[in-house]
Amino acid sequence: MPKARRSWPRCTSGALRSTGKAMNVVVVGAGAIGSPLVCGLLQWPEVEHLWVVDGDRVERSNLPRQPWYQLADLGQFKAAALANALGDRRIHPVVEVVGEAFSWPPADIVFDATDNWPARQAIQREARRRGIPWVFSSAVRWEGQVAFMRPQGPCLACLFGEDPGEGLRCFEAGVVGTVTLAVAGQALAVAKAWQAHGEQWEDRLYLLDGRTGDRWWVRLPPRECPHGT
């Protein structure tokens, strides 16, 4: 059965770098990275609308690293529970999985807070189609990664190869909540830095290590993506 398309508020495309102007943000994933990320984004006065997209429900095993949820939220949709917990009218919960049929809100930037490649590839496709940036992020065990993805810059294949596989996910390898907090903070920091520096901002993949408390980055070559994504 086809889904009814929503009527989203008007897009303010291109406003991200105009500090002080309204900005529309989509965060895909309301879990360990997405929930602190949403909290941080709400501190940005420029954020006018913030869509939180997640089709998952709160499970008991989420609680140690997703402390915005309580026992009373078990079984609730994460996106709705997060909106309820934070009580900010700018948050629009969307209880869906991103994929081919997903109706994307009119975002100026998309934050990836998922734990799987199909969702990241869907985010990348949509961001490139619209010519907007997105922020890649991931965490497993004590390690995290974050990259700011410009529409004409390196793509996922440039960073990780054309067939990176699914890799370890947190339900297989475990993850530490404070590491996901650090990853969310780095995702906010790269978006802010790009806001400040615009096209002068270098493409970098940030690597975080919770064992040592270290952060470093790999500079990505300043060239067009050859993968046609």
Partner: peptide, 19 residues
């Protein structure tokens, strides 16, 4: 600091201490 850098440093610092 009160921004994303502060959030990252908090997360990394707590992680290292706990580890």
């Amino acid at each position: 600091s009160s921004d994303g850098d502060g959030m990252r440093e908090l997360g990394l610092g707590l992680s290292r201490l706990i580890c």
